[in-house]
Design a protein around this nucleic acid. Structure first.
Length: 674
DNA sequence: CTCCTTTGTCTTTTT
DNA sequence: GACAAAGGAG
C-alpha cells in the first residue's frame, strides 16, 4: 500500500508525506508538487497512520483547491466520498456552525452575507440615527465601521469589545454602531464572512461541549497556503489542535500576496514558536517550469528580505527566452497579445493552455474587446462576479427571504423591486418596528404593519408579503428550479425586463436564465439539494471556482486570481510604474508584496512567458505616459528577448538608477480610438 | 412614488 | 469613461 503511495514522490516529498514526529511545515516553492504532498499525506494518514476519514480536517483558500484535493484523494484511495472534512476556511466553518448554531443563539438556517450586504445593513442602521444625513456621509461612515470591524476580527478580536477600536474621539460612534450591527445580524439570522470564523473560534474557546466534540473528532488538521492566513485563522488552527491533534501546514513565504487582507507571513515563518519541535521540510525541485522562467522568478523577488533563500531547480531545461513586448497604448498591447495568442494557436497550443494576467480588473476590458473582435475564445475569471450582478442579487434576495424570513437585508433589497408602491417612508416605518430586543422576523413585522396600517401603503405591503408566502409554498417538493422560475415570474421581475426591450435588459435576462441553469446544476450535483445549501454555495464561491480548464478558452484574470493555477503560455501585462507595482502599494512592505505578486505571475508559466508594457495608458479617463516597470530591470537581460527600440530606450535609460523611480509625468495625448 | 436628467466620485488586489 | 446619488417634474 505505502509503496504505491510513495512511488511518484521525490525524497523530500516522501519525507513530508510519511512524517510521524509531530507538527509539520512543508515549505513548498511554486510548482514543487504541494498539492500532491497534501493529498498523498491524507491518503497516507488514512492507510498507514490508522486515522479514520472523518477525523481529518483539511482547509484551503479556494473551493477549487478543495475540490481538486478531494478528487485526488478519492483517486488515490479508490472509491467515492471519503468523508474527510475538506473545504475553505469559510465553508468548513459554515458547515460546523450550522450544527452548533443554537449554541450561539442562531438557527441552523442562518444566511451568509457578503461585504456589500454588510455595508447596506450598516448604512440602514446609521440612517435610523441620522434620518436627514446625506447618503454620501452615511456611506463613508459605514465603510469606516466595516473596515474597523474587519481589522479587529481578523486579529481575532470582537470589534465591539473595549480596546479593540482606535481610541480616537472622532471614532467614538463606531463602537455603539457595531454593537447594534451585531444585534441586527443576530435578529436577522445573518453572519458575515468574519463571523463565520469568529463564531467558530468562540465556540472552540468558550463552549466546553463544542470544543469537546470537535477536538475529539479531528485528529489531524491540514492547512494549505498557510502564508495567506491571518491571525484569526491561525487561532482557529490552534484551537483545533489544542487537544493534541496532528498538524500539517503547507505554504510558501514568497507567495504571500494577501497582506492587505490581514494575512501574516509570520504565521508561516514563526510557526515554530507556536508549535515547538516543528519539523520543516523544504521542497525545491520544480516540476512545472523551464529554468529560464525559474531564474526570472528568483530575480523578481531577490531584493526582498528572506529568512531563507531558496532557489528552485528544474529538469525541464533552459527553455525559451522571455519575450518583452513594448506597446504604444492599451489597445496596441491587446493587439500584440492577440497576435501572439493566434500564433501560439496556429502552432498547436490549445486556448486553455494560455493565460493573460493583469494587475487590476479594469485592464481586462481592452483584451476582452480585442479577443472578441479576433474571435479568440476567452474567459474572464473573476472580475465582476456573476453572483454580484444586480439582477442576480435581486433574484437571490427573494430566495433568501424564502429561506430565512428574518433576513432584513434581503427584505430591504427587494421589498420594492420591481417598483410596487412601497417607498422609503414605508420601509423605514416597517424596519422601525424591529427595534428593541427579540424582534419578530422582518416578514412577520411587515405583515403586522400592513394589517394595522391599512391604506394604500398597507395594501401594497400586504400584496408583497403574500407574494413571498406564495413563493415559500413552492419548495415543498424540494424542486429548486421551480422555485426560481416562480420567483422570476411571480415577482414580475422578468416581465419588467421583457417590457424594457433594451440590449441591457436582454443581457440581464440571459443572466437570469444562467442563474436558473446554475440552480439546476446544483440540484443535479448534490445528493440532498436544499435551498439553504444552494444559497450557501453561492455566497462562499471563490473567484477561480468558475475556471474550468476543459473549456477551451484563453483565461483572462488578475494575478491574484491566478494563484494556484498553471499554464503553458503566460502573458504578464501592464508592467508599468504605478500599475505593476501598483501606485497604492507605497512603503517597503507594499513593494515587497508587489514583488511577490510578480513572482506568482511568473511562476504560473510552464514553458513560455511574455512581459508587456504600454507607453501611454488611459487612466481615470485621462491619457498618461507610462514608464516600464522597475520590476523589468530586476530580470537579467540575458533571459529577455524581442526588445524593440522603445524598450531599449526606456529600459537602458533606467539601468543603473536602481531604486530611484522617475516621476510619471502626466500630459494630454489625443485618444487614438474609442 | 417613480422616472428622468444631471452631477459628482472614483479604481488594487477578495474570502 | 462608469456608476450612484441628488434633484426636479410628473
Amino acid at each position: 500500500m505505502t509503496d504505491a503511495l510513495l512511488r511518484d514522490l521525490n525524497p523530500a516529498q516522501a519525507r513530508a508525506v510519511t512524517w510521524t514526529g509531530g507538527p509539520l511545515l512543508v515549505l513548498a516553492g511554486a510548482g514543487t508538487g504541494k498539492t500532491r504532498v497534501v493529498t498523498h499525506r491524507i491518503a497516507w494518514l488514512l492507510q498507514d497512520g490508522g486515522l479514520k476519514p472523518w477525523s481529518i480536517l483539511a482547509m484551503t483558500f479556494t473551493n477549487k483547491a478543495a475540490r481538486e484535493m478531494r478528487e485526488r484523494v478519492d483517486r488515490l484511495l479508490g472509491g467515492g466520498d471519503h468523508a474527510v472534512t475538506l473545504g475553505t476556511f469559510h465553508s468548513v466553518a459554515a458547515r460546523l456552525l450550522r450544527g452548533f448554531a443554537d449554541r450561539l443563539g442562531y438557527e441552523p438556517g442562518f444566511t451568509i452575507i457578503d461585504t456589500d450586504d454588510q455595508l447596506r445593513l450598516l448604512k440602514r442602521l446609521l440612517r435610523e440615527e441620522r434620518p436627514h444625513a446625506a447618503a454620501r456621509d452615511l456611506e463613508a461612515d459605514a465603510k469606516t465601521a466595516r473596515r474597523l470591524a474587519e481589522e479587529a476580527m481578523r486579529e481575532g478580536l470582537r470589534p465591539a469589545a473595549k480596546g479593540t477600536l482606535p481610541r480616537d474621539r472622532d471614532l467614538s460612534w463606531v463602537g455603539p454602531l457595531l454593537r447594534r450591527y451585531a444585534q441586527a445580524k443576530r435578529a436577522s439570522q445573518l453572519m458575515d464572512f468574519d463571523d463565520l470564523l469568529m463564531n467558530l473560534l468562540q465556540l472552540l474557546r468558550e463552549d466546553e461541549l463544542v470544543r469537546g466534540v470537535l477536538t475529539a473528532r479531528y485528529r489531524h488538521v491540514l492547512v494549505d497556503e498557510f502564508q495567506d492566513t491571518n491571525r484569526l485563522q491561525l487561532e482557529l488552527v490552534r484551537a483545533f489542535t489544542a487537544g493534541g491533534a496532528g498538524l500539517t501546514v503547507v505554504g510558501d513565504d514568497d507567495q504571500s500576496i494577501y497582506g492587505w487582507r490581514g494575512a501574516r507571513v509570520e504565521n508561516l515563518l514563526d510557526l515554530g514558536t507556536v508549535y515547538p519541535g516543528l519539523e520543516v521540510v523544504p521542497l525545491e525541485e520544480n516540476y512545472r517550469s523551464t529554468q529560464t522562467i525559474l531564474t526570472a522568478a528568483y530575480h523578481a523577488i531577490r531584493r526582498n528580505p528572506h529568512l531563507r533563500e531558496k532557489r528552485l531547480v528544474t529538469r525541464q531545461g533552459e527553455g525559451e527566452a522571455i519575450r518583452v513586448l513594448a506597446c504604444e497604448t492599451e489597445a496596441d498591447e491587446a493587439d500584440k497579445v492577440a497576435d501572439a495568442v493566434l500564433a501560439l494557436r496556429r502552432g498547436g497550443v490549445s486556448a486553455s493552455a494560455i493565460a493573460v494576467f493583469f494587475r487590476t480588473n479594469a485592464q481586462s476590458r481592452a483584451f476582452e474587446a480585442r479577443f472578441r473582435r479576433g474571435r479568440i475564445p476567452h474567459r474572464v475569471v473573476g472580475g465582476q462576479r456573476f453572483y454580484e450582478r444586480l439582477e442576480i442579487r435581486d433574484a437571490l434576495a427573494f430566495a433568501r427571504l424564502v429561506a430565512n424570513p428574518s433576513d432584513r437585508v434581503a427584505f430591504e433589497r427587494i421589498v420594492n423591486t420591481p417598483p410596487r408602491g412601497i417607498g422609503e417612508q414605508t420601509v423605514s416605518a416597517i424596519l422601525a418596528t424591529l427595534a428593541g430586543t427579540d424582534p419578530p422576523p422582518v416578514l412577520d413585522a411587515a405583515r403586522a404593519w400592513a394589517a394595522t396600517t391599512g391604506g394604500r401603503a398597507g395594501a401594497a405591503v400586504a400584496r408583497f408579503t403574500s407574494l413571498v408566502d406564495g413563493l415559500a409554498a413552492v419548495p415543498a417538493g424540494a424542486d429548486l428550479v421551480a422555485l426560481f422560475n416562480a420567483i422570476l415570474q411571480q415577482t414580475g421581475y422578468l416581465a419588467r425586463l421583457e417590457a424594457e426591450g433594451t440590449l441591457e435588459s436582454e443581457g440581464r435576462r440571459e443572466n437570469l436564465s444562467a442563474l436558473v441553469t446554475s440552480v439546476a446544476e446544483y440540484a443535479a450535483r448534490e445528493p440532498a439539494p436544499t435551498l439553504r445549501g444552494y444559497l450557501e454555495s453561492v455566497s462562499l464561491q471563490t473567484d477561480t471556482d468558475e475556471w474550468d480548464e476543459g473549456e477551451g478558452a484563453v483565461a483572462l484574470m488578475t494575478v491574484h486570481a491566478a494563484k494556484g493555477l498553471e499554464f503553458d503560455a503566460v502573458f504578464v501585462t501592464g508592467l508599468e510604474e504605478g500599475l505593476f507595482p501598483h501606485l497604492w502599494s507605497e512603503g517597503e512592505r507594499g513593494v515587497e508584496e508587489e514583488r511577490r505578486l510578480f513572482h506568482v505571475a511568473i511562476t504560473r508559466a510552464r514553458r513560455r512567458l511574455w512581459f508587456t508594457h504600454a507607453r501611454t495608458r488611459a487612466r481615470f479617463g485621462q491619457w498618461q505616459y507610462a514608464t516600464p516597470s522597475p520590476f523589468l530591470t530586476d530580470i537579467p537581460r540575458h533571459l529577455l528577448s524581442g526588445a524593440g527600440p522603445l524598450r531599449r530606450r526606456s529600459l537602458l535609460a533606467r539601468l543603473g538608477e536602481e531604486g530611484t523611480w522617475v516621476d510619471t509625468s502626466t500630459s494630454q495625448i489625443p485618444p487614438e480610438d474609442e
